[in-house]
Amino acid sequence: MTNLNNQHILISRVDAIGDVVLTLPLCGYLKSIYPDVKISFLGRTYTGPIIKCCGAVDHFINYDDLKAFPEQEQILALKAESIDTIIHVYPQKKIAILAKKAGIKNRIGTTNRTFHWLTCNKLVRLSRKNSDLHEAQLNIGLLKPLGIKSVPQVSQLVGFYHFRQQVVLPQQFARLLASDKFNIILHPKSNGSGREWGLNRFAELIALLPADQFNIFISGSDKEKELLKDWLPTLPAHINDITGKLTLHQFIAFIAEADGLIAASTGPLHIAAMSGTHALGLYPTTRPMHAGRWGPIGKQAEFVNSGTDELHSISAGIVYDRVKAWL
């Protein structure tokens, strides 16, 4: 393909929040080369708010809604979108079969999924597990069949998020943010997506953060709130518990208006990085979970490597020293 302008390209990634965030630079990079291309994103209900924050995405297709229809109606729905190309960033056999049956002309997938050999007509040799590239760079590597062979450096990817806040933060949450203190969000859990620093380490960090300088929030999903229910009451009275209280749209806005966030490799860390908020990620050195593959990408994003296959070796003092530099 020599010119993709006015073409309709569907990016398919139906997994978790962090994975989706790290796919958005692909959309921005593609748009920077072909400004008139139409980009749709096939995602899940719960990642829709993330996808809609990317100005490079023109249209969100909800896979949860699509797969609720009988197969023939799913095929007709995809046909009605007049899609020229689908890129299977997150390989899913059912979606690959559906795209072929819908007659999408160009179907891009990796060679290391057997079903792609039967469902895709543009194959890319791509090994994520053993690569030294960042996840966001690996995603961009799937553009090769479109004639886009150059992959930007990680530092360059920041400019391709095209982040735009979708909702105004409701006053009940906006008033929690202090104008005279550094508003910092601590996100202790990872929803099973990676190693965790441990609640004792977060408690140690809280003890180091001066209450007259830091306005501290503990965040987490409804499910994570249940996991934190015995720990939260043990924290000092000035700590703000916002676990399970915000929708994802609201949480994105809250993160964007806060000053910093600390977490292991999990969705909120990547949201903070994308939105330009200070983001500190805590990572093991183990492949493929290391920061070289999954580190946050943002103008004010950074990470700490543990040097081991777990995170407990990262002391609260090390993290505090990083946070002090944000003031």
Rank of each mutant, 00 (worst) to 15 (best):
T2D: 11
N5C: 04
H8R: 14
L10H: 07
I11N: 04
V14T: 13
D15K: 03
A16F: 04
L26D: 04
G28Q: 03
S40V: 02
G43V: 03
G48P: 15
G48I: 14
P49T: 11
K52G: 12
C54P: 06
A56T: 08
F60L: 12
I61E: 01
D64C: 01
E71A: 09
Q74P: 06
L78M: 12
K79I: 09
K93W: 04
A96E: 01
I104F: 07
R107V: 00
H116L: 06
T119W: 07
N130I: 15
H134N: 02
E135R: 15
V151N: 02
L157G: 08
Y161L: 03
Y161W: 05
Q165T: 08
Q166C: 10
Q171P: 13
K181A: 06
N191A: 15
W197H: 02
E204M: 13
L208D: 01
Q213L: 12
N215R: 13
F217L: 00
S219K: 00
K225I: 00
K229F: 14
I239V: 05
D241V: 05
G244A: 09
A253S: 14
F254L: 00
E257M: 06
I262R: 00
S265I: 10
S265D: 13
S265Q: 07
H270W: 10
A272W: 10
S275M: 07
T277W: 04
L280I: 08
G281A: 02
G281I: 02
Y283H: 10
P284Q: 11
P284N: 12
R287I: 15
P288D: 03
K299M: 11
N305C: 12
S306E: 00
V319I: 06
V323P: 06
A325N: 13
